[in-house]
């Protein structure tokens, strides 16, 4: 599938130019969460588990989602402001190749965001188990949201639409996806609703792996299925982006 590499490389080169700015912006929100939720509101959860140890894997899930989703903004700017997207449309590369390049760039951003969280976690004394299950869950979560981001970036008609999607999809999920508080504390009906959010399953898988607890296979399969569905949606959406 020729063509995915230059698309991916372009994003990496831009990331390299913005590296320190990106790193700083990736650290701001998690740092605020750690201070506000971890220190100001946190403590012991009642089961002997320190809240910070609960929070850090949740922030990993949240950050891998938001950073992977961030590729949508880059595509949006490239499409509507710089018109660089036209260069890809006019090039002899297939839609799957274009989508793969952008999705991998989203995954790369997400992994960088995760490393920032892990660094902050270490700074506040939280060590997580970085086994294969942890990275698999992070990878699937990033792949799913990067694919969704590419699909949405193709479907929106303006910068404003992109911002609205973030408000309706990402912000609610970031709070209600089991990242900063245990979902078991919600009423039954609310818990049932959170089960439809992909981030709920990602948080569950990432936290179990990070805390070296048994990881049930269901979240992995759900993320894989959803990720592939979003990827194919993105491939189809590239055609719709043409006038």
């Amino acid at each position: 599938m020729h063509g995915w590499l230059p698309v991916f490389l372009r994003e990496l080169k831009i990331m390299r130019r913005r590296f320190w700015r990106m790193l700083a912006s990736m650290a701001v929100s998690p740092l605020l969460y750690l201070i506000a939720f971890g220190y100001a509101l946190g403590g012991d959860q009642g089961d002997g588990q320190a809240y910070l140890a609960f929070l850090v894997p949740g922030l990993v899930a949240m950050s891998s989602m938001t950073q992977a989703w961030g590729i949508a903004t880059d595509i949006n700017v490239a499409r509507f402001y710089w018109h660089v997207f036209e260069e890809f449309q006019a090039a002899p590369i297939s839609n799957p190749a274009y989508v793969l390049g952008e999705v991998l760039a989203g995954v790369a951003r997400a992994l960088l965001g995760v490393l920032v969280i892990l660094g902050l976690g270490l700074a506040v004394g939280v060590e997580v188990d970085l086994g294969p299950c942890f990275w698999l869950a992070v990878g699937l979560n990033s792949f799913t949201f990067a694919s969704l981001a590419v699909a949405m970036a193709m479907l929106v008609k303006s910068h404003a639409d992109q911002g609205m999607l973030s408000s309706f999809i990402i912000t609610p999920m970031a709070f209600l996806g089991g990242t900063v508080f245990p979902l078991e504390r919600l009423p039954g009906w609310a818990q049932a609703l959170t089960e439809v959010l992909p981030l709920t399953h990602a948080s569950r898988a990432i936290r179990a792996a990070a805390l070296d607890q048994p990881s049930p296979p269901l979240p992995f399969f759900l993320l894989l299925g959803l990720g592939l569905a979003c990827f194919f949606l993105a491939v189809h959406s590239v055609n719709l982006a043409r006038e």
């Binding site: 063509g3 831009i14 018109h83 036209e86």
Partner: peptide, 20 residues
């Protein structure tokens, strides 16, 4: 529609890569 954050050479090189 050039990538303003990339160099002149990088813009041309990425184009060449797109054409394999």
């Amino acid at each position: 529609n050039l990538d303003s954050e990339l160099t002149v050479e990088e813009n041309l090189d990425l184009h060449g890569r797109l054409y394999d």
